[in-house]
Amino acid sequence: MTEPLVKVDRLTKLFPVSRGMFRRPVDFIHAVDGVSFEIAPGESLGLVGESGCGKTTTGRLLVKLMEATSGQILMHDDGSMIDVAHIGSDDLRRFRRRVQMIFQDPYESMNPRRTVFDTVSEPLAVQNIGSLREREDRVAQMLQLVGLTPPNTFLFRYPHELSGGQRQRVAIARALVLDPSFVVADEPTSMLDVSIRISIMELMLELADAFDVSYLYITHDLAVARYMCDRIAVMYLGKIVELGDTEEVLSNPLHPYTRALLSAVPVPDPTYRKPPVEIKGGITKAINPPTECRFIERCPWATDVCHSTEHPPLEDKGGGHFVACHLVEKGAG
């Protein structure tokens, strides 16, 4: 891999669980627990997992909507690496030019009292870029790019005058108006109907090429991740348990959790015979999790090693296929 655009090292976020107003919190939800990965320029990494696995928290930490408890996020910027945790206020503005976010719910992420022009031009205003005239041109150009055409019929509309798909197009225009190099997209299509979903996914793929932008694409849907991402990382209870090239992970899943997840995904082919899902139960809460493997309670293959050692490290099992499991041999990837 060339010089990474984003380098995440042992990122951790703990949320204290309060047991009473005057008591010091003693219990912590380990939302994100020692997560490390890299994203190359122009690459799109999918972060998949079930609700509560920490994928959204990871995304929010990366765009600095939340502060990490520990760990490091380094972001490449004009030849130097910025340490996201220790950005000063001047650098923060510069950071926001490089890094943007697209949210899940286009009904909640837009101010209902502001027009499309206000919403899309706001980042330009905050960054003091261009005159009003230039901003108008830039916004019109963005609307054209995201398929809201002709732009002048959309510029002064309010969110309630737009459909869900159109709102998500506005959100994409807002995210890309500053020409960022990295965008965190948190389930950007999960609220949309199928027929709209694909056009938004296609749009994001096209724009990734046009703007040379990297995505961290957060989704619960492996089929969507397969379509959108070069590599995927599977999260379980705050840990990445498997990471690798999308097709490699989907065709050769090595972690028991990834395998279970894959066999549970419904397949749009009535003649397809699914392998049975081998794990039991639902996801547990990440409050003070055990130090041994996070997956141990649900794993049908857990051995003495799994019970007597700490959570296994995420190791390259061959060809850049990383797995955190004691039972997966080296060279299996």
Binding site: V194, S195, I196, R197, I198, S199, M201, E202, D221, L222, A223, V224, R226, Y227, E247, L250, L262, V265, V267, P268, D269, Y272
Partner: peptide, 16 residues
Amino acid sequence: STPSVTGPRRKLAPLE
């Protein structure tokens, strides 16, 4: 336009 985890990775046709 329905993506799947199985079968060949095909181009999905968006509905206009």
